[in-house]
């Protein structure tokens, strides 16, 4: 019985992540439009787009290889698995011990690897532009994430996300290192999701795009999967920030339905707040030059490093 309940909870979390991710994108678009005095499309719109794309015929470039056709499934699956390993409304779910924070980051790295390869498969210059920029950003963003992971796990004594969340919820501590790790994680999250100062999710300018450039030749269900994956990635990062730094309201896996309902409510609220801040940040800023991004990410990396150093300050006392 217990096993069944755990399985249901885990499955519910996976489906919840999948269902919420496009809504999240729709919500942030809506907020941005409202901030610009526009009406904006309905929140459900990304889901409609995805479903429409799924029904469409795929137009493949003549020299697309098997890699190009299988990459969207792999990217989607890896991102989905990574996203469902992050505690959303409850900690310690069934499969949460299967992979720790490092493995989640690495799974996203794999997804990036395949996306970059898919971008180069057709042999057009835009795919190459996107892939090479992504490789440059990724080579700085991942070490920065690893440093954040170090900081957090030095503090919590584990790399297991559920345990980290439990530790953070249990020991209210204000630490400079944790604060810096948060700032660094925000920087990385913005870069990894291609949000405004790094990449423009609403852009149509072929020459400045990163993510959109890689997927330029994709269409139909493949495009839908990649869009879904990128929505899931955004959800993952917000959930990650929420569960590590603001673990308020998270339910334990054995806490029963009521606690889980509270956890769910808190989770949705956290997502909404995160999105609101994101929309505000995005409207107030212009995209930076491509070669400013390494500086930006470098700052994230340095902050991560600094955070790990500072862990020792209080630790030693």
């Amino acid at each position: 019985m217990n096993f069944l309940f755990d399985l249901v909870a885990q499955g519910a979390q996976m489906l919840l992540a999948l269902a919420l991710a496009p809504l999240l994108i729709g919500f942030v678009r809506k907020l941005k439009a409202r901030l610009l005095h526009r009406k904006g499309p309905p929140i459900i719109q990304p889901w409609r787009d995805i479903i429409r794309l799924l029904r469409k015929e795929v137009v493949l470039a003549e020299n697309a290889s098997w890699l190009y056709r299988s990459a969207p499934y792999l990217i989607f699956a890896m991102t989905w698995v990574a996203a469902s390993l992050v505690p959303t409304f409850a900690t310690g779910l069934m499969f949460s011990w299967a992979a720790d924070l490092i493995a989640i980051i690495a799974l996203l790295g794999s997804a990036r690897f395949f996306l970059a390869l898919a971008g180069m498969d057709i042999g057009t210059s835009f795919g190459g532009i996107g892939s090479s920029r992504e490789a440059m950003f990724g080579s700085l963003a991942e070490p920065a994430t690893i440093m954040i992971v170090f900081t957090v796990s030095f503090v919590a004594g584990t790399t297991q996300l559920s345990e980290i969340a439990a530790y953070m919820a249990g020991n209210l501590e204000l630490r400079a290192s944790v604060g810096m790790a948060l700032v660094a994680l925000l920087i990385v999250a913005i870069a990894e999701n291609g949000r405004v100062p790094v990449d423009n999710p609403a852009t149509h300018l072929e020459l400045t795009m990163v993510h959109e450039a890689m997927v330029l030749e994709y269409s139909g269900r493949y495009l839908a999967l990649i869009e879904l994956a990128s929505a899931l990635k955004l959800l993952l990062y917000i959930s990650l920030i929420a569960c590590v730094f603001f673990p308020v309201g998270l339910a334990r896996h054995d806490a029963g339905l009521q606690a889980m309902a509270i956890g769910l409510g808190a989770y949705v609220l956290k997502l909404a707040i995160g999105e609101g801040l994101l929309a505000l940040f995005e409207t107030s800023r212009a995209k930076m030059r491509v070669f400013r991004v390494p500086d930006f990410l470098g700052a994230g990396l340095m902050l991560g490093l600094l955070a790990t150093l500072l862990v020792f300050v209080t630790r030693s006392l």
């Binding site: 795929v58 137009v59 493949l60 057709i122």
Partner: peptide, 11 residues
């Protein structure tokens, strides 16, 4: 949909 069609790259 499971249909797909080959065409020149968009570019």
């Amino acid at each position: 949909s499971a249909r797909s069609r080959r065409a020149p790259a968009w570019d």
